[in-house]
């Protein structure tokens, strides 16, 4: 089966799914709980490095390593989320950005992370003696993605999700309604971080080589622009936003469209992402799939008109 499908296409889909998991985590922190994070790549990096270090340096079983990576990212993200208790909104963005840069700099300088050289020879997971690569890895990532979507759906529709949304709307109100804002804010960071950790571990075992450069601010900003495009606080928004922005540049590569110098494809990609962030914020701050969908807006407008007419009649 593997030979029928170009492994390159499989890789694209695998990375797309990993990005969606990463985006879901960020959406949880930023979209649902309203805590802006510009350091999401750090959580992704912690997951990737934890799993890589455990398997390469300590010879831990791959599956256990992935699981431990998620647990450790959960704990570390909770700790890194603590500033959100003192700092809010745009300053939180700067703080998380700073944390992201500090963590990236630790990856680059610490001994256990392989320093500037990074870590290589990260083994792929195996099941019953079969190494999971290519198509079967796609299966593994798909299972993780579905699990992530399921968890996120259940969580956001429960008491926790409602608490997050209240905090997002107005923290003071949330507090006065008896919501433990401290607990829920840290929880949002922990779970969002754990999602990123899972994505990072999957990434590490897929590419088998990681270095600090993969976890910089560019990645945080990329993921943020994808989530923002889809709409903050919407699961399908994230899935569609990430897919759209991730696949669009890949289309140029796959179909070999020579519209421009391919050398600069990554830069054009970043230009597109940046411009999308500006334009979406300006014209549709809730994203393509935000609450004010076109259909609803039309409906609202027509009902508002009707109301206006009615009021007019009364006055007349």
């Amino acid at each position: 089966m593997d030979s029928f499908i170009n492994p390159y296409y499989i890789d694209i889909i695998v990375f797309l799914f990993i990005y969606i998991i990463l985006g879901l985590g960020l959406n949880l922190i930023t979209g649902y709980a309203g805590q802006v994070s510009l350091g999401h790549a750090a959580f992704y990096g912690i997951g990737a490095y934890t799993s890589a270090i455990l398997t390469v340096k300590f010879g831990v079983n791959t599956w256990l390593a992935i699981f431990l990576a998620i647990v450790i990212t959960f704990i570390l993200s909770a700790i890194l989320g603590l500033p959100s208790l003192r700092v809010s909104e745009d300053f939180l963005a700067i703080t998380t950005l700073g944390l992201g840069l500090i963590i990236q700099s630790i990856f680059k300088n610490a001994e256990i992370t392989g320093g500037a050289y990074g870590l290589d020879m990260i083994p792929a997971p195996s099941l019953f003696g079969l190494e999971i690569i290519d198509l079967s890895y796609l299966g593994l990532v798909l299972v993780m993605l579905l699990l992530a979507i399921f968890i996120m759906k259940r969580m956001t529709q429960s008491r926790i999700g409602r608490a997050w949304m209240t905090i997002h709307e107005d923290e003071t109100v949330a507090q006065s309604m008896g919501i433990n804002t401290t607990y829920y804010k840290v929880l949002a960071f922990a779970i969002g971080g754990a999602f990123a950790g899972a994505a990072g571990a999957l990434f590490a075992h897929k590419v088998s080589y990681i270095s600090a450069d993969s976890f910089g601010f560019t990645l945080s900003a990329t993921i943020l622009s994808m989530v923002v495009l889809g709409g903050l606080g919407k699961i399908r928004g994230t899935i569609l936003g990430v897919s759209l922005l991730y696949l669009l540049p890949e289309l140029f590569r796959v179909f070999d469209i020579q519209l421009f110098d391919m050398k600069y494809l990554d830069l054009y990609k970043m230009m597109l992402y940046g411009m999308i962030m500006v334009l979406v914020m300006r014209y549709r701050p809730k994203g393509i799939f935000g609450n004010t969908s076109l259909k609803k807006r039309k409906k609202n407008r027509s009902s508002a008109k009707k109301k206006e007419l009615r009021d007019g009649e009364i006055i007349a």
Binding site: V36, D90, L224, S225, Y268, M271, Y273, M277, P285
Partner: peptide
């Protein structure tokens, strides 16, 4: 509007201009 909206817009324009400069 909400400061976050402006902040994301600022991040976006920064990324755009920096990539443009690299091109």
């Amino acid at each position: 509007v909400h400061p976050i909206t402006t902040l994301i817009s600022g991040v976006g324009i920064a990324i755009f201009l920096e990539s443009l400069f690299q091109v």
